[in-house]
Computed example of a mutant assay.
Amino acid sequence: MKIAFSPCPNDTFVFHAWAHGCIPGAPELDITYADIDVTNGLAASGKGPDVLKISYAALPWVLDEYALIPCGGALGRGCGPLVLTAGDKSAAGSGSDTAATAPSMLSGRRVAVPSERSTAYLLFRLWAAQAVPGGVGEIVVMPFDQIMPAVRDGQVDAGLVIHEARFTYPAYGLTLMRDLGSWWEDDTGLPIPLGAIIARRSLDLAAIANWTRQSVQYAWAHPEASREYVMSHAQEMSPEVTDAHINLYVNRYTESLGEDGYAAVTALLSRAAREGLVPEIDPSLLR
């Protein structure tokens, strides 16, 4: 079975057991490791593999061909993207805004984002519609690992960051303007839908969900079994950052979306559709 997911620690942790033949009856995996922006494109092309990890933001373009698998993905609380600037952080976290942390400073400015088909981007646009007078200026798409250096070096005015950047941005001397996960949770009371596992509708979807769920459960039951595999793909992350990444993004929603999870996905995509950011979807196609 052909599958594509990112080399990020949460994905390799989740799929280690299946990838290494630890799930009875599960087919052998032919794995492509790719950034989620690449897997989004593979799914939309119609020529993607059997199973993929994509952004929830990309779902509206692929639901005719692919079904959402209700486990294995990344959805949770306290794990959202961050808006960062290079300004003075003396008031960051103090409950007041400096010029560097006031959303109004983004009016007409350049903001770097990792993709325009990502949950991070949807959350940013939904937040900016409320918080940035007149809207932001130019959106600059760049690989996520280049965003923090670009903000630090003044190439852009702010950056939208994801993944392990939550833990490493202080090393770049950057300032947190807004945690968009916290904003989303405060605004909706729902968890944040980040990455989804999808499979071709022509396949045995119940079996794929079962094998994926067993792989998640195996990972939790044998956390050291995947260590070498995870670290070999961890892009020079420290073991401490790798563990923090897994602990944040692999949670009860990874084992089962549940009603909260489905509600979060529906809320995100329906709000984004109203803003003209994604096509409208038929919510029945999510289940």
Score class of each variant (00 low, 15 high):
60 P>Q: 08
190 L>V: 09
92 A>Y: 04
268 L>I: 06
237 M>P: 00
45 S>N: 02
283 P>F: 08
101 T>W: 02
23 I>P: 03
174 L>M: 10
231 M>N: 02
227 R>A: 13
131 A>G: 06
84 L>A: 04
31 I>D: 11
74 A>W: 09
249 Y>E: 07
171 A>G: 15
79 C>Y: 00
17 A>I: 11
284 S>H: 13
244 A>V: 00
84 L>F: 01
279 P>V: 11
269 L>S: 02
247 N>F: 06
81 P>K: 01
48 G>I: 00
243 D>W: 01
244 A>W: 00
120 A>L: 10
128 A>N: 10
156 V>G: 02
32 T>K: 07
198 I>G: 05
26 A>L: 13
175 T>C: 11
67 A>N: 01
90 S>K: 08
131 A>H: 10
174 L>W: 03
31 I>N: 09
211 W>S: 05
72 G>M: 04
155 Q>M: 13
129 A>M: 15
216 V>G: 06
150 A>Y: 00
201 R>G: 10
145 D>K: 08
276 G>E: 06
222 H>D: 07
188 T>H: 14
36 I>T: 14
234 A>L: 12
90 S>H: 07
111 V>I: 14
273 A>N: 08
57 A>M: 08
115 S>Y: 03
157 D>A: 07
64 D>I: 04
102 A>H: 04
238 S>P: 03
279 P>C: 14
155 Q>R: 14
26 A>M: 10
239 P>H: 02
85 T>E: 00
172 Y>S: 13
186 D>K: 15
204 D>Y: 14
1 M>C: 09
25 G>T: 10
52 L>M: 15
211 W>I: 01
190 L>A: 14
